[in-house]
Amino acid sequence: MISAGWRYDEERDEPLRDAVGVPVHNLRLYGAFRDIERDAPDLVSAHARKQGALKAIKARYRDAIVAALGGVQRQWTDRRDPASPWFRLAIRHLQEIDALFLAEADRLHEEFASTERPFSHPSVREVRDRIAEALDPCSMVLIAGGHVGVLRNRMSFFGVDQALREKDIVAWSGGAMVLAERILLYHDYTTHGVGLAEYLDRGFGLVPGVVFLPHARERLDLGRADNVAILAARLAPFLAVALENGGGIGPDGERIGHPDAVGVLGVDGTVTPLASLPGDHATRP
């Protein structure tokens, strides 16, 4: 089980253990990183510098999004036509900004990996060995949500995503987000105004061609066609899949649970119940 997204509460997993009903081993990635902070301060400093650089790029990314999204919204308001060449041009511009940010993030991650070689560090290697040993007998891995940034970073820092490729996985909320190709942050109802959706980073791509939007009804104004259309167009060619409580996607891409609990955002501004992911989006590796 991975519950690093719960941060300090990582090990408060008794309710989940009780619900699962079989022996559960918590990989304790958040706690392991805290140990690394103590044991390998230079490595952690380098990691913090990388995250700081990412934050600085993020600030520029946000500025660029504000301007570009304004253009997209104006083009939508004019014609309400997703096929309009002006709307498509504005969307392409926004997508280029998203792509640039993700490329910059890739560059920073790669620089960190090549210069610091974290997996070669004895403390990290020890944790990775422990993880491999723990995962070996497991027939399934559970990934809980929580702070999706922390979850992704801890999984990535210890290279757990690689070890998961041969495992059956049950993931929810933020846990599902990190398995998709890209991780989008969104919330239309913050108390200090509508937040503009932005990419956190790439996901681990275990579910190809998809961006998951858990708790979409709670966090997104899906009643507004322009909101839905712009988000769907922006995320294309990835499918924007809204996941609600009581629904999910099974190993062959089939919907699980209530039809209204899994939907796909369309460029026509509607959310359509999903029967199953198209073939090239299947969740089974």
């Binding site: 809980a144 949500g145 929580g146 702070h147 999706v148 940034g149 942050l185 200090h192 956190l200 708790h215």
Partner: peptide
């Protein structure tokens, strides 16, 4: 602002 933006649970 808190990290609500980052929490999905």
């Amino acid at each position: 602002p808190g990290p609500l933006w980052m929490y999905y649970e």
